[in-house]
Computed example of a mutant assay.
Amino acid sequence: MPGVEGGVGLTALMVAAARAIETHRPDALAADAYAEHFVRAAKASAAWPVRPAEVPDGDANPLWGRLGRYFGLRTRVLDDFLTRSVHAGARQVVLLGAGLDTRAFRLGWPAERVVYEIDRDGVLAFKHQVLDGLAAIPTATRRPIATDLREDWARSLLSTGFDPAVPTAWLAEGLLLYLPSTAERRLIDTVDHLSAEGSTLAFEVKLGVESPEIRANPVYVATRQQIGVDLLALFDGEPRPDSAGHLRELGWSTETHTPFDFTRHHGRGPLPEPNDALAGNRWIFANKPGMYR
């Protein structure tokens, strides 16, 4: 299928496989019943594992064990972020680079919430084909928007019914790592411009360029060898902007966490290791202050 069979699109299938495996763990942090169907529907991933018993070496496998558990933890943390945001009053949710995200189908949304999913046409077409085949029914009003986030995606969002006067929960999960720095700065400025007071934003960044020792970490090596995904080649190599700092300059409040903060909170997930491929990852949570609570 165009859009998911190569490049960054293939990482959407990788994350779907990790979510499928997490779903079937006895101590699962998140559940996504649709994830394995995406993996099986694409030729590139049809033979990948979707259950813990199918993973060679189990949790010792750097890809499906350590990195897979990371994706499971990230899913849970960002599920919780969106759930808190909408129950506190956010009326709209925007998934930037939505990929194979199924939150519009699997989370319990309050009434009259709208979920916008922005991604390239090929990714959304594949997603629709699989979900339509399953007769999946969204639990919120869902509005997919086929556009490239490096282009004028705001115009497409506004033309689909998005209301910038209403508090919004924004999510950029596994997106900014692949965008050029200019596109990241433009995205942050656009989110700020479109956000009413009380809006929230969560996103993932990686600090700086990793050392040769970290680039040789088994997570990167196993991902390249087992499924042909060279994450290091996909990550944008430009110096990264300080998006959290920029948001603070724009009046937002921010919190920065390592993934390991949430491993300790939930009692499961990856912990630090020497020359860690996850050590530079940060999860940012931002709030645009206002009357909204």
Results as ranks from 00 to 15, higher is better:
residue 148 D to M: 10
residue 199 S to Q: 08
residue 140 A to F: 03
residue 144 P to V: 07
residue 100 L to R: 03
residue 134 L to P: 07
residue 184 E to L: 12
residue 245 G to F: 05
residue 80 D to A: 14
residue 139 T to A: 14
residue 291 M to Q: 14
residue 39 V to E: 02
residue 148 D to A: 11
residue 256 T to S: 15
residue 55 V to F: 07
residue 112 E to Y: 10
residue 168 T to I: 13
residue 92 Q to E: 12
residue 7 G to C: 04
residue 210 E to A: 15
residue 179 L to Q: 10
residue 56 P to T: 13
residue 285 F to I: 09
residue 219 V to R: 08
residue 176 L to C: 15
residue 196 A to Y: 06
residue 290 G to P: 06
residue 97 G to F: 06
residue 254 T to E: 03
residue 147 T to D: 07
residue 201 L to D: 09
residue 109 W to S: 04
residue 82 L to C: 07
residue 229 V to F: 02
residue 117 E to D: 11
residue 118 I to W: 03
residue 293 R to E: 06
residue 252 W to P: 03
residue 50 V to Q: 01
residue 240 R to E: 08
residue 146 A to S: 11
residue 72 G to H: 01
residue 81 F to P: 11
residue 215 R to S: 05
residue 140 A to Y: 01
residue 28 A to V: 11
residue 236 D to E: 11
residue 152 D to S: 03
residue 56 P to Y: 04
residue 236 D to A: 12
residue 11 T to A: 05
residue 109 W to K: 05
residue 101 D to C: 04
residue 128 H to W: 04
residue 164 P to M: 02
residue 225 Q to Y: 00
residue 146 A to F: 01
residue 96 L to S: 01
residue 146 A to H: 01
residue 259 P to W: 05
residue 256 T to Y: 04
residue 213 E to G: 12
residue 143 R to F: 02
residue 84 R to H: 14
residue 190 T to V: 03
residue 272 P to W: 00
residue 252 W to N: 08
residue 263 T to L: 12
residue 163 D to W: 01
residue 111 A to T: 09
residue 250 L to W: 04
residue 3 G to W: 00
residue 198 G to C: 09
residue 115 V to W: 00
residue 79 D to E: 13
residue 46 A to F: 06
residue 160 T to W: 00
residue 184 E to F: 05
residue 181 S to R: 13
residue 39 V to P: 04
residue 167 P to S: 10
residue 71 F to G: 00
residue 83 T to K: 01
residue 44 A to Q: 09
residue 88 A to T: 14
residue 216 A to L: 06
residue 27 D to H: 08
residue 137 I to M: 05
residue 280 G to E: 08
residue 54 E to F: 09
residue 139 T to W: 03
residue 102 T to M: 11
residue 18 A to V: 01
residue 184 E to A: 15
residue 25 R to N: 05
residue 117 E to M: 01
residue 165 A to W: 03
residue 181 S to K: 10
residue 136 A to S: 07
residue 187 L to P: 05
residue 292 Y to R: 15
residue 108 G to S: 15
residue 183 A to I: 12
residue 73 L to P: 00
residue 97 G to V: 00
residue 120 R to Q: 14
residue 201 L to I: 11
residue 195 S to F: 04
residue 292 Y to N: 15
residue 80 D to H: 11
residue 150 R to S: 12
residue 200 T to V: 14
residue 34 Y to H: 14
residue 203 F to G: 03
residue 256 T to M: 10
residue 38 F to V: 09
residue 255 E to Q: 15
residue 163 D to K: 08
residue 79 D to H: 09
residue 181 S to Y: 07
residue 130 V to C: 04
residue 24 H to W: 14
residue 69 R to M: 13
residue 12 A to G: 06
residue 102 T to N: 14
residue 233 A to Q: 13
residue 24 H to M: 08
residue 216 A to N: 11
residue 211 S to T: 15
residue 288 K to V: 01
